[in-house]
């Protein structure tokens, strides 16, 4: 009986630990290839959102972009709507924060 009780307690502790750890765990890293349907630059130019249409699922995904290099590419139109993008992002607190945002095309 004592043994059974110990196992139940142990499982309960593990379950609670998992929940706590899951809450504090780092963001989930995602990758996708998609065509840009819309780019919206923030007024102060320090951030932007880009809506990508996932080429695999057709689903629209909103990506938040804050890195200087990609923002600069939006500003001088090196990256524009219609471009196909290879994107790596962190899914965190319901937001998709860009870690890599580059055109698939090369020469």
């Amino acid at each position: 009986m004592n043994k059974l009780f110990s196992v139940v307690i142990l499982l309960a502790v593990m379950a609670v630990s998992n929940l706590v750890l899951a809450g504090s765990a780092s963001a989930e890293e995602m990758k996708m290839v998609g065509e840009i349907s819309k780019i919206t630059l923030a007024g102060d130019g320090t951030s932007a959102t880009a809506i990508l249409k996932d080429t695999k699922t057709g689903e629209s995904v909103t990506i938040e972009v804050t890195d200087e290099m990609t923002l600069d590419k939006f500003k001088d139109k090196r990256i524009v709507e219609g471009d196909e993008i290879r994107c790596k992002f962190d899914k965190d607190d319901g937001k998709n924060k860009s870690k890599r945002f580059v055109k698939t095309a090369g020469c």
Binding site: M69, R86, K103, T104, G106, C107
Partner: peptide
Amino acid sequence: TKNCMVCHESAGGGALFKRGFSMT
């Protein structure tokens, strides 16, 4: 650097494929 990288970062078939360096 941006003027140069417009072409030089896309060489080899994709962004930073060929020589694989970043000038950030």
